[in-house]
């Protein structure tokens, strides 16, 4: 009986830690997407490439 309770408590602890961990991970701000989902900002930062001389491709 005691073993069963210990197992249940341990299982709940692991479950809570996993869920909390996921939430924390998901909440971590990803700054890449702040810029790369901003159309106007990307437009303002973009510099057109200088094109090299090249043959056509098949």
């Amino acid at each position: 009986m005691k073993n069963r309770r210990t197992f249940l408590l341990a299982f709940l602890a692991v479950l809570i830690a996993a869920l909390y961990g996921t939430a924390v991970f998901a909440a971590t701000p990803n700054k890449c997407i702040q810029c790369h989902t901003n159309d106007a900002l990307m437009k303002s930062l973009h510099k057109p490439p200088v094109l090299p001389k090249s043959d056509g491709e098949g």
Binding site: I33, H36, T37, N38, D39, M42, K43, L45, H46, P48
Partner: peptide, 9 residues
């Protein structure tokens, strides 16, 4: 082309 760097949220 800047669109090449814009990701759909």
């Amino acid at each position: 082309m800047y669109k090449g760097y814009v990701v759909d949220k």
